[in-house]
Simulated scan of single mutants.
Amino acid sequence: MNATVAVFGFLRFPPEKLAAVRPHLKTLVEATYQHDGCIAYDVAEDLFDPGLIRFSELWPNVEALQQHLVAPHIEPWRTAARGCGLLDRKFTAYSVDESWAV
């Protein structure tokens, strides 16, 4: 399946809250893969910036991304993130016209 949408973003939490964030994040990622039709949904803690969690996502189309944003598992995740002290968030979606190996 070819991706037509790529999303990159981050969430920032107090570093001391990351242990509390991880189980909620795991639930989000598993539900997204199981239900939302994503091609890739990768999440990682930044090794050099404690408290920063980076996201990279590939979606088959805008409609799949829009459905993900209102999926039943999103609001519980957002509530949990706020409860864990979410400090900042930024996500940007891009249209993917073609891809090639580098």
Rank of each mutant, 00 (worst) to 15 (best):
F55W: 11
A19V: 12
F13S: 02
D97A: 12
T32I: 00
Y41S: 01
L87Y: 08
W77C: 09
K17P: 11
V5M: 05
L69K: 13
L25N: 01
P72L: 13
K17Y: 10
A71G: 11
Y94W: 15
G83S: 09
V43W: 02
A19G: 14
W59C: 08
L87W: 09
R12A: 00
G9P: 08
A64K: 12
T4V: 02
Y33L: 11
K17I: 10
A3D: 08
P15K: 08
H68S: 05
P15A: 10
G37M: 03
F48D: 15
P76Y: 06
L58S: 11
F55V: 11
F13P: 03
C84D: 08
R89T: 05
I39R: 10
Y94F: 15
A71C: 11
S56C: 10
L69D: 13
L47D: 15
E16N: 13
V102F: 09
I53V: 12
V7A: 04
S99F: 11
E98C: 11
T4W: 05
F8S: 14
D42Q: 12
E45A: 15
G83T: 12
Q67P: 01
P23M: 04
F55S: 06
L52E: 12
V21H: 01
P72M: 08
L47Q: 15
E98H: 08
P72E: 14
C38Q: 03
A81L: 04
P15Q: 08
V5W: 04
R12Y: 01
S95W: 06
K90V: 00
A19E: 15
A3Y: 03
A80R: 05
W59N: 06
Q66Y: 04
G83V: 13
T32R: 02
R82H: 14
T32S: 08
R22C: 01
H24D: 12
G83R: 07
H73S: 08
P60I: 00
Q67I: 02
E63I: 03
T92V: 15
A81T: 07
E16W: 10
V62W: 03
H68Y: 04
T92C: 12
Q67M: 09
Q66P: 07
G9K: 01
T32V: 01
R54D: 07
W77I: 06
P14V: 11
D42P: 01
L28T: 02
G9H: 04
G37T: 07
L58A: 12
F13A: 01
L18D: 10
R12D: 04
F55K: 06
T27S: 07
R12N: 01
T79M: 09
L11G: 00
L58R: 14
L86H: 02
I74Y: 07
Q66N: 14
P23W: 01
I39S: 07
L28N: 05
C84P: 12
W59G: 09
T32Y: 03
S56E: 07
S99I: 13
A80W: 03
Q66T: 05
R22S: 05
Q67L: 12
D88N: 11
F10E: 09
Q67D: 11
Y41P: 08
P23F: 02
D46P: 14
E16K: 13
A3F: 06
W77G: 11
F10T: 05
D46I: 03
V70N: 09
Q67A: 13
Q67K: 13
A6H: 07
A6F: 05
H24L: 10
A80P: 05
T32E: 00
R12C: 00
Q34G: 10
Y33P: 05
D88M: 01
L11C: 00
A81W: 07
